[in-house]
């Protein structure tokens, strides 16, 4: 039905040029380029994402501030993972690894729910280098008595 199929396109930018005759009837969209029999067994970064999967796109430019992650302080409680609205906390084998900046919108929930003292995640200006941010990390807060 059409010269090339949306399914055949690998490059996200190529999609934008498609004419009416190249569209999949009914505007169906596909998650993957090939069958994935048991998707829960495949970690996100190993899936054969179609260019029509939002995973391949990014919303990082929505942010004015970004969460920076400090591994040294983290206790891997996974609060940040469970409450992240944007699947942007990368966690493997019960360990927090880092933030997926392509998908993080900078809401700051991960920082709010982080229970360590000082926090293992803090918001910093978007333009600041993460290593610089780590150098600026605050010290432990004394609890008010």
């Amino acid at each position: 039905m059409g010269k090339k199929s949306l399914k055949d396109i690998k490059d996200v930018n190529e999609i934008k040029e498609l004419g009416w005759d190249e569209l999949i009837p009914g505007a169906a969209l596909f998650s993957f380029t090939e069958p994935v029999e048991d998707v829960v067994e495949v970690p996100m970064d190993e899936r054969p994402y179609a260019p029509t999967n939002s995973h391949e796109w990014q919303v990082g430019d929505w942010r004015v501030e970004k969460p920076v992650y400090n591994r040294d302080l983290c206790i891997d409680c996974q609060f940040c993972w469970v409450f992240c609205p944007d699947m942007s906390i990368l966690s493997r084998d019960k360990k927090m690894i880092g933030v997926i900046y392509e998908h993080c919108k900078g809401c700051g929930i991960c920082v709010e729910v982080c229970p360590t003292n000082p926090k293992s995640l803090l918001m910093f200006p978007e333009h600041l280098d993460n290593n610089e941010a780590l150098k600026m990390w605050p010290k432990k807060e004394e609890k008010e008595k």
């Binding site: 498609l18 009416w20 005759d21 169906a28 969209l29 596909f30 998650s31 069958p35 994935v36 998707v39």
Partner: peptide, 24 residues
């Protein structure tokens, strides 16, 4: 094994092409 999304939203950059395809 082949998840598909039906009933998407298309705005001014896509709707016209889809309706044209349908009419065709």
């Amino acid at each position: 094994a082949n998840p598909v999304t039906h009933g998407v939203q298309t705005e001014e950059d896509w709707h016209f092409e889809h309706k044209a395809r349908q009419h065709n």
